[in-house]
């Protein structure tokens, strides 16, 4: 049995690999999170986010590498006295009342947060006497996230805390989490919404294909994904236009091509729109109807992970570089 060490960082993951049959969910992942950080774990579905959290919460063990929680093995229950996780809101015991679920979880800790405070932080006071089976999806989600704080943890792991919530409920949850972080807790939150990570995190770790693709301050990663969407029409067939456009400097990818009245209408993603337009003009291509606008976060994010995955396959340094 390992023991937690005072002063050890909340999370140290070193060269962790985890496979499920033929699928490699995590491939040589290393991650260190210091006390008081609030880290967003961003990646598409199947990127390995949930697997990473299941290793941190002691649910699974890695095939290779080490996972440490405050210096201890998360498989050892004693290492988890400082950990708070959240159940999926679909899995709450339906017949128990809200206050009973809170008390039940609190019963696992020596010095839990008082029930009144748990309920107040998430605006659940009115619902204390209701059975969880009778709550709305949003209310259940709030309760589920509230449960992660019942043990007054120093490290909170949240897996997609606000997926499926409306805007208002989402903001209530975010505010409660920011509050708790201000009290001194370390928070790791996963999401496939960039917006959620932007609202909560100071540092963002982008995972894709089981690898860490980027790990940086949130503003830097946002820069990284600040792509522009360029739309234009070229006369002629798709194939010819596509290859000509791909070769232009600044153009990252040709994401769409549809037949239009006077040829084919192409949509490009450009890391540097200015450079792309200059190159386009210099190339002498007979384009018309040029439009430039910001890429949606989803597009940008997908481009980043796609690029990262190819970069990771060829080079040991997975952080994609974008000139700005």
């Amino acid at each position: 049995m390992t023991t937690t060490t005072p002063g050890a960082p909340p999370v140290v993951v070193e060269h962790v690999t985890r496979r499920f049959g033929a699928v490699t969910a995590l491939d040589d992942v290393s991650l260190r999170v210091e006390a008081g950080e609030i880290v967003g774990l961003l990646g598409p579905n199947g990127a390995g986010k949930t697997t990473l959290l299941s290793l941190l919460s002691g649910l699974r063990r890695p095939d290779g590498g080490t996972v440490r929680l405050f210096g201890g093995d998360p498989r050892d229950p004693a290492s988890r006295t400082w950990l708070g996780t959240t159940p999926q809101e679909t899995g709450l015991p339906e017949t128990l009342k809200v206050r009973e679920v809170v008390d039940f979880v609190a019963g696992h800790y020596a010095a839990p947060m008082p029930r009144a405070e748990v309920l107040a932080r998430f605006g659940l006071e009115e619902l204390a006497e209701r059975q969880t089976g009778g709550l709305s999806g949003g209310q259940r989600r709030r309760l589920a996230v509230a449960l992660s704080l019942v043990g007054r943890p120093r490290l909170v792991l949240l897996d997609e805390p606000t997926t499926g919530l409306d805007v208002e409920a989402r903001h209530v949850l975010w505010e409660a989490l920011r509050d708790y972080h201000r009290d001194g807790a370390t928070v790791i939150v996963t999401s496939h919404y960039l917006e959620e990570i932007e609202a909560l995190a100071e540092r963002v770790v982008v995972v894709g294909g089981g690898r860490v693709l980027a790990d940086d301050r949130i503003d830097r990663v946002l820069d990284l994904v600040a792509l522009r969407r360029v739309t234009l029409t070229l006369p002629g067939e798709e194939a010819a236009g596509r290859s000509a456009l791909r070769g232009l400097s600044g153009v990252q990818d040709v994401v769409d091509a549809v037949p239009a009245a006077a040829g084919t209408r192409f949509t490009l993603l450009a890391a540097d729109a200015d450079a792309a337009v200059r190159a386009l003009v210099a190339s002498g291509l007979p384009f018309h109807a040029l439009e430039v606008r910001g890429a949606s976060l989803e597009e940008a994010f997908l481009a980043l992970t796609a690029r990262g995955a190819t970069a990771a396959a060829t080079a040991p340094v997975p952080t994609p570089e974008v000139s700005r």
């Binding site: 006295t81 019963g107 800790y109 007054r152």
Partner: peptide
């Protein structure tokens, strides 16, 4: 709200 902060000090033991 009575703000109890994040657990501080030495790590609490498991419940019996």
């Amino acid at each position: 709200m009575t703000a109890t902060t994040v657990a501080a000090g030495p790590r609490a033991a498991l419940r019996p």
